[in-house]
Design a protein around this nucleic acid. Structure first.
Length: 216
DNA sequence: CACATGATCGCCT
DNA sequence: GGCGATCATGTGG
């Protein structure tokens, strides 16, 4: 009997159930094949969605961080590291990279750039649909827990019609704040790079070292 | 093989 | 602000 190390059928929080019948528009591949900080910035306001047993669950991304690959001491691909765990980071933009941290939390990243580059955007926080607790997804580990995302999903293509997808919705552009990334104190000079982007008006942002704002 | 550590979180003082 | 949980992974011998 083979026993899977991780389950893929962990149910998302029921409070994240999405209305069917709304106009969801999937992000095109080209969205991901460009500068990683631009992708991180533009992922604010995008919906990260999961299908489970025929139903769609999801949340609106309000905080994300860019990881710039081989030249970024905070990135898992720093200095070209290429191990089984980080291999998904080298896939074409639009794939997912998930890793386990502190033995108990998962972190989800959206790969950027063409195949072979090794850059990605960490999804740090999101807001559920109306009625969901404001802090339910306020942190990368909580976001994955609420949507049932584990390393079993690492490497999947978000644009292949699978159970994990990214959707865009028409609406006002969020006001974006920028700061250094969180939790990368070990990364030398890279720890101060302004690569964290967040929705200035969201109560779900995991921390708020309010740096500078950009006009949406 | 041994061992140090982490892109976190919640609880403690 | 500090600390411990808990274990896959990376590195070094």
């Amino acid at each position: 009997m083979s026993r899977a190390k991780y389950r893929t059928d962990i149910p998302p929080d029921h409070r994240l159930l999405l209305d069917s019948g709304q106009a969801w528009k999937e992000l095109p591949r080209s969205f991901f094949l460009r500068e990683t900080d631009g992708v991180a910035r533009d992922l604010i306001g995008v919906w990260f969605a999961r299908r489970h047993q025929g139903n769609w669950y999801g949340a609106r991304i309000v905080e994300a961080e860019a990881y710039l690959g081989t030249t970024d001491a905070a990135a898992h691909t720093w200095r070209g590291r290429r191990t089984p765990r980080v291999e998904p980071m080298y896939k074409e933009g639009g794939h997912l990279y998930v890793f386990l941290i502190y033995g108990m939390y998962h972190c989800a990243n959206v790969v950027t750039q063409p195949e072979g580059i090794g850059q990605a955007v960490l999804l740090r926080a999101a807001e559920g649909p109306q009625g969901a607790p404001p802090k339910l997804l306020s942190g990368p580990g909580k976001l994955c827990a609420a949507l049932g995302v584990t390393v079993a999903f690492s490497g999947v293509d978000l644009l292949a019609g699978g159970d994990l997808r990214l959707f865009h919705r028409a609406g006002p552009s969020p006001s974006i704040g920028i700061s250094a990334r969180i939790g990368v104190h070990y990364a030398g000079a890279a720890k101060d790079w302004p690569l964290r982007f967040y929705d200035l008006n969201s109560p779900a942002v995991s921390k708020a070292p309010q740096d500078r704002a950009t006009g949406s």
